[in-house]
Design a protein around this nucleic acid. Structure first.
Ligand SMILES: [Mg+2]
Ligand SMILES: [Mg+2]
Lengths: 227, 227
DNA sequence: GGGCGTGCGGCCTGA
DNA sequence: TCAGGCCGCACGCCC
């Protein structure tokens, strides 16, 4: 007789949150250790490492992230530390700034609305540093985890943008093909590679098509094409 | 006797908004003519010009701006047009994206929260394109005017801009490495992290380099370096 | 853009 | 050795 735990083993394994970023750790600056963001990361079973970072608060692969609460952000406008920090972050190939808990009504904080807008614009245009606005520490943690997660699947082997008014002939052909059920970017591309143009595909014999389309897709394809 | 209107001239002149950007016009794409943003710009006496823009919605000096309502933003996630637009915007030296009326509760729109987060992160990290979040059309207009305004006073408070010759050694090294075909910011960074300086990289053996460069890049690298 | 369902093929098993 | 089932993965679809 199987032990009880085995009965639930599958479901259990499913339910238990897996580490979402086992290969790409989130390196957390030791000074952020106390923060609720770190607690959230741990709670979500994220793979994290603490390290003293001279620049930024989080390092994910080659992306450096500076996190600021909205209050921090406002005070760094006054003491002018932010430009230096942003400048330093440029030492990493990629970087972004997180502003946590943004309020639209700046004036509640006795800041002129245009002062805040000007700062945001300066970050955008002078430094070309992207800003991610998050609701709270949990939201911040989710963003960080997702950032790491994107490195887990190295091949986002994905699609050419399908659009009716795409420019090139090939894109337009791909767009047409992707209209058929079961045919996505990969299959469309494979079809075009083999048959070179749409006419050849549409007049092709089942046998030839079957090298690319499985039976189910093939039947549907022919049904739409011919019936 | 002075005409009546002159009685209010002073107060009138004060109230009457001066053109905030007389020297730097905001060039508005003709397709945005109908939008409430354009109306707001006119109402605020902004110096604007209508022109057909192939890329983006607003052009201020050398900064191209794409404006999307939150709804637009979501639909451009579906039809995958945004990545193309963003890479087109890179033809201008500076660019940013405006997202108008952002809602934190993505799921109200039946979008998975992580899909929206992923998109924002992709804009930030893959394209390094800053995003400005605005409340509504009026807020958008204020941001645009402020952007133009910064060009009116060329050398004042914008002096924090990081200048080319203030680049750190590391930045200069990265710049050199990125000159090689197939080597971008990430690879350059990885090389420097491993070898610490350029000389070490240039005299390194293929075997050691191959940890970072794949064969093709490595051959090209060595070809440029040695042949 | 991410999540999720689905079908395909590779693989492990057992007789 | 091969049939059958199981699992992982690639792909397409949805929002
Ligand atoms: Mg910080
Ligand atoms: Mg637009």
């Amino acid at each position: 007789m199987k032990p009880i735990e085995n009965i639930f083993s599958k479901k259990g394994a499913k339910k238990e949150a897996e580490c979402p970023n086992s290969k790409t750790p989130i390196i957390v600056d030791t000074r952020e250790k106390q923060s609720l963001v770190a607690a959230n990361l741990l709670h979500k079973k994220a793979n994290i490492e603490f390290e003293k970072l001279d620049i930024g608060d989080y390092l994910i692969n080659d992306i450096i992230v500076e996190r600021k609460t909205f209050q921090d952000f406002l005070s760094s406008m006054i003491n002018k530390r932010l430009p230096e920090q942003l400048s330093n972050m440029k030492k990493y190939p990629k970087q972004f700034l997180i502003i946590e808990g943004f309020y639209y009504n700046y004036e509640k904080f006795n800041f002129h609305e245009n002062a805040v807008r000007g700062m945001l614009l300066s970050i955008a245009t002078d430094f070309q540093t992207p800003i991610i606005f998050t609701e709270d520490e949990e939201d911040t943690a989710k963003f960080l985890i997702l950032t790491a997660k994107k490195f887990e699947k190295p091949k986002t082997n994905t699609s050419i943008r399908p659009s009716r008014n795409s420019k090139t002939l090939e894109e337009q052909r791909l767009f047409i093909l992707e209209g058929f059920p079961g045919i996505g970017p990969s299959t469309a591309y494979a079809l075009l590679k083999k048959f070179h143009n749409l006419k050849n595909i549409f007049k092709a014999k089942k046998k030839d098509l079957s090298e690319i389309l499985d039976e189910k897709k093939l039947d549907k394809f022919k049904e739409i094409l011919e019936d």
